[in-house]
Simulated scan of single mutants.
Amino acid sequence: MMRKTLVSLALAAGVAGGALATAGSASAATFVPGGVYPSVQACSDAGNAGFPQGRWVGFYCQSLGYGQYELWVQPTY
């Protein structure tokens, strides 16, 4: 169980590190973390709530395991 947690954390850190390494300059295609949610429904609801507020133009939810999901958003620059 501990190994799965460590693998999940390492994968998340790798994705975040890769995003930072390739980001260089802000662009409309860059996704940034927007929070962690207890279910895919809560993550999706939070993602959809940002559209009418003009906070971002796109989003997706990534499973972190153990029922948690990370919201990745594509901000308006």
Score class of each variant (00 low, 15 high):
M1P: 14
M1S: 15
M1K: 15
M1T: 14
M1V: 14
M2D: 15
R3V: 14
R3G: 07
R3T: 11
T5E: 09
L6H: 08
V7K: 11
V7T: 13
S8Q: 07
L9G: 15
L9T: 12
L9I: 13
A10V: 14
L11K: 11
L11D: 12
L11N: 12
L11H: 09
L11R: 12
A12R: 04
A12F: 03
A13V: 08
V15E: 05
A16C: 11
A16R: 07
A16T: 12
G17E: 09
G17D: 07
A19M: 11
A19H: 03
A19T: 09
A19G: 08
L20Y: 08
L20T: 03
L20D: 05
T22E: 12
T22H: 13
T22N: 11
T22G: 10
A23H: 12
A23P: 10
A23T: 13
G24Q: 10
G24H: 12
S25Q: 10
S25E: 09
A26L: 14
A28Q: 06
A28L: 05
A28S: 08
A29Q: 13
T30K: 06
T30C: 08
F31P: 00
V32N: 01
V32W: 01
V32A: 00
V32I: 03
P33W: 00
P33S: 01
G34A: 03
G35D: 00
Y37P: 06
P38Y: 11
P38I: 09
P38N: 15
S39D: 10
S39Y: 06
V40T: 14
Q41D: 14
C43T: 04
S44E: 15
S44W: 06
D45K: 08
A46E: 14
A46D: 12
A46P: 13
G47E: 06
G47C: 07
N48R: 15
N48C: 07
N48T: 12
A49Q: 10
A49C: 06
G50T: 07
G50M: 06
G50L: 06
F51W: 02
P52K: 09
P52A: 07
P52N: 07
Q53N: 11
Q53S: 14
Q53D: 07
G54K: 02
R55N: 06
R55T: 04
W56P: 00
W56F: 00
W56A: 00
W56N: 02
W56H: 02
V57I: 13
V57M: 09
V57G: 15
F59Y: 15
Y60T: 04
Y60D: 05
Y60I: 02
C61E: 13
C61L: 10
Q62M: 10
Q62I: 01
Q62W: 01
L64A: 08
G65R: 06
G65Y: 05
G65V: 07
Y66L: 10
Y66Q: 12
Y66I: 06
G67H: 04
G67L: 01
Q68Y: 13
Y69S: 03
Y69N: 06
Y69L: 02
Y69G: 02
Y69D: 03
E70D: 04
E70V: 00
E70S: 04
L71C: 04
L71I: 01
L71D: 01
W72A: 02
V73C: 01
V73I: 11
Q74F: 00
Q74R: 09
P75K: 00
P75H: 01
P75G: 04
T76Q: 14
T76A: 15
Y77G: 14
Y77H: 09
